[in-house]
Amino acid sequence: MSEPFDPTAPEAVAPIPVKIVVAGGFGVGKTTFVGALSDITPLTTEAAMTTVANGIDDRGAVTTKTTTTVAMDFGRAAIDKSLVLYMFGTPGQDRFGFMWDDLISGALGAVVLADTRRIDDSFPALDYFESRHIPFIVALNRFDGKIFHSLDEVRSALAIDDSIPVVTTDARVRNEVKGTVLALLDVVLARAIARSESSVPA
């Protein structure tokens, strides 16, 4: 459906975009995470939202949120001349489900960013990615360098499959974010390899 890519056209400088999604509750550090790896200051887009969120957004840290749009921040990192990585940070609450199908369409995978003090904020994202068979990992953001529970405790609290990596990260630190994205891409690669092997006749 897209125009064939013609490398001789003057427009051919456009790189091919690949996308990953960074999901998690309000205030968990999604935008910081995206910004740590992005070539640009994360940009904000809005998606229209229904009134269902009125009266729900009352978590202490976000009491200034008064609009009825969902802000979705994203950044990008040029990988090479013809490949650019887009990272979309999206609220993880289930009431944003209306736009997740659009968001996840074509995405390679997702990082579920979690705060161990509010671990249940990540449940809707986990449910979503599990049900859609989207490759994902769980990354615990260390606030002030602290993780309040062991990785095993978190894994057990999240009730996720042993095959899902649970890592710690620091959304403020580029190298940590890089490592987290690489952990996700390893899962993506392993899945692709598994699929290619299972599709080869024995």
């Binding site: 990192a77 990988i79 990585l85 390679l108 891409l185």
Partner: peptide, 18 residues
């Protein structure tokens, strides 16, 4: 894309080099 192993590997190398 999700089945394009060469592309995914290229992406991994690229992210490592960021």
């Amino acid at each position: 894309l999700a089945d394009d192993i060469a592309m995914i590997k290229r992406l991994i190398q690229g992210v490592r080099a960021l």
